[in-house]
């Protein structure tokens, strides 16, 4: 028997979209198979029936076209939620996201802001091979003008959309594909889109994660606890702008850090965070910052190869133990 109020990550996002559609006539959902099909990951199931084809719009397979149309509709006074089926397909719309959504406000000298929300699935772990498994949110976090969110909890899945829609600028929400079936009872409360969150506290080491790697990192912290190592777990939540203060506050207590990122190591988000720690907390560190990232390969199909490619609990534990031993 399920506990009262139990929901899934998928249902939490659906309820957030539903609430947004009810709350504001300017909001509409647009993307491939969001309507009749119910969403590739069943996120929008039932919304077409409730809100009709005007506000739950199936699009052709034209990522640049419909993402750009979302930008234009935002300029025209609407509050679009554009769903891109996976992050890999977002590359077909990268021109619109980077050259228009991220630049129009600045290029127009402050005249044209773009109040647009783009949601997409990211991440590996489901044997979908290289073209359906990448974690490119770190690339998007490189781009000034965008805000990048990575909900890892039911509360964030449910609560991040409303402030994203209230934001006057483009917000990209990355939903890890491995989380849609995660279930539980979301805790009530306010959810911001500005800060990182401490998901567990311990003064021996800081583990920094987000999205799909948060839960592996929490499992690693459990295992570390059995070995007498108490870990702070920082859930970044917002990848741009990064909440440096929360990271540095934790490192100020623990003096050691491991960054866990499903993106690649070279030139990635973990490199950025590591550099910021060096810049802002160098004298607090008792050991070199460790990184657990995805191996530098296109994500392979075979289960054992995929598992070897992406961050796992065992690797996080090993990195943390090394940092603590240093």
């Amino acid at each position: 028997m399920t506990e009262r109020g139990t929901t899934t990550y998928r249902e939490a996002i659906r309820e957030a979209i539903r609430e947004a559609l009810l709350r504001d006539d300017r909001v509409f959902l647009m993307g491939e198979d969001v309507g009749v099909y119910g969403g590739c990951f069943a996120v929008s199931l039932g919304l077409l029936e409730e809100f009709g084809p005007g506000r739950v719009r199936d699009t052709p397979l034209s990522e640049a076209g419909f993402v750009g149309a979302g930008i234009g509709a935002a300029l025209g006074g609407m509050r679009p939620i554009v769903e891109i089926m996976t992050v890999n397909f977002s590359l077909l719309a990268l021109d619109q996201i980077m050259n228009n959504a991220a630049t129009l406000l600045h290029m127009s000298g402050g005249q044209f802001n773009v109040p647009l929300v783009i949601r997409m699935t990211t991440g590996a772990g489901r044997q979908l091979a290289a073209q359906h498994s990448h974690s490119l949110e770190g690339w998007y976090a490189h781009i000034p003008g965008l805000k990048i969110l990575a909900p890892a909890t039911l509360e964030d899945a449910r609560g991040m959309l409303a402030p994203a829609l209230d934001d006057p600028d483009p917000v990209l929400i990355f939903e890890h594909g491995g989380l849609y079936n995660m279930s539980g009872v979301p805790r009530p409360g306010l959810v911001d889109i500005a800060t990182a969150a401490l998901r567990r506290t311990g003064d021996d080491i800081t583990l920094i994660a987000y999205g799909g790697t948060l839960h592996k990192t929490l499992a690693a912290a459990d295992e570390l606890a059995t070995r007498g190592i108490k870990a702070d777990v920082v859930d970044l939540r917002v990848l741009r702008p990064l909440d440096d203060a929360t990271i540095m506050e934790s490192i100020g207590r623990t003096h050691r850090a491991v960054i866990v990122d499903e993106g690649w190591r070279s030139g990635g988000l973990s490199a950025e965070i590591s550099a910021r720690i060096m810049e802002q907390a160098f004298y607090q560190l008792d050991a070199p910052v460790q990184r657990v990232c995805t191996a530098e390969v296109p994500i392979p199909y075979a289960r054992h190869l995929e598992e070897a490619a992406i961050p796992q609990v065992i690797g996080i534990v090993a990195a943390a133990r090394e940092a603590v031993a240093a």
Binding site: H106, G145, K147, P163, D169, P188, D192
Partner: peptide, 14 residues
């Protein structure tokens, strides 16, 4: 003008 100057640090309510 990289971000709107009216940008709120908004929050959604669960």
């Amino acid at each position: 003008f990289v971000y709107s100057e009216t940008s709120p640090t908004g929050a959604g309510h669960v």
